[in-house]
């Protein structure tokens, strides 16, 4: 510092050199730029990705299950008050009337309001507990075509009460409740 008693002259306003340190502003700009780049990249990546997971198949599975469940319920609903349901009559014959099941079930699940039919296939059986013996038996009712193992099938079931007049699921002809089970898939 210049003090006049020491001989230096004050020749004018002496300005102290001011250095502006703008290095810190780069951090802000860099931060914003980096943030924008990351966000844009993530958005592009996510939008381009469409991973078909098990969660996406549940819609078509649900539609098929609903259709199969409706068809079995309708087949187990008698046409008139004192009639037997078609499903009961089919199971209540020895052997089960697969031809009738094939005709009726395919007509129900493949029928559409517009032109043309759907292409849904099935395989159906019923399961019962033997009397006497108390073991589980499964009997084929019918199928539209054999399953090859590659089909993505859904399972629908219906409990059906039968009143057989012949030895049924064992050696007795007592009334029985069996589980009708149908696997259905779309070609």
């Amino acid at each position: 510092m210049c003090f006049p008693e020491k001989g230096c002259k004050k020749t004018g306003t002496r300005r102290r050199a001011v250095q502006e340190n703008t290095a810190g502003q780069l951090y802000t700009i860099e931060g914003i730029a980096a943030g924008l780049i990351m966000i844009m990249t993530a958005y592009l990546v996510v939008n381009a990705t469409s991973v078909y997971t098990a969660g996406d198949t549940h819609i078509s599975d649900m539609q098929l299950e609903q259709l199969g469940s409706d068809a079995l319920n309708i087949m187990d609903t008698p046409e008139t008050m004192n009639a037997q349901s078609e499903l009961r009559m089919i199971i209540n014959t020895s052997p089960p009337d697969g031809g009738a099941f094939n005709t009726i079930f395919l007509n129900l699940i493949n029928g559409k309001a517009g032109t043309g039919n759907d292409h849904i296939q099935y395989t159906a059986n019923y399961t019962c507990r033997t009397d006497p013996g108390d073991s589980i038996e499964s009997h084929l009712i019918s199928y539209s075509r054999p399953m090859t193992g590659g089909e993505h099938a859904v399972r629908v079931t219906k409990w059906v009460t039968v009143k057989p007049s012949f030895p049924f699921c064992g050696t007795t002809n007592t009334n029985r409740t069996v589980l009708a089970e149908v696997l259905i898939w779309r070609d």
Binding site: Y27, M38, A42, T53
Partner: peptide, 23 residues
């Protein structure tokens, strides 16, 4: 700047689970 970077980073990380969902 560092705060902005961190916020954006956290937001991008939170989107990763969404990569596993078919949108």
């Amino acid at each position: 700047g560092f705060t902005i970077f961190l916020l954006a980073f956290i937001w991008v990380i939170s989107m990763i689970p969404g990569l596993l969902i078919g949108l």
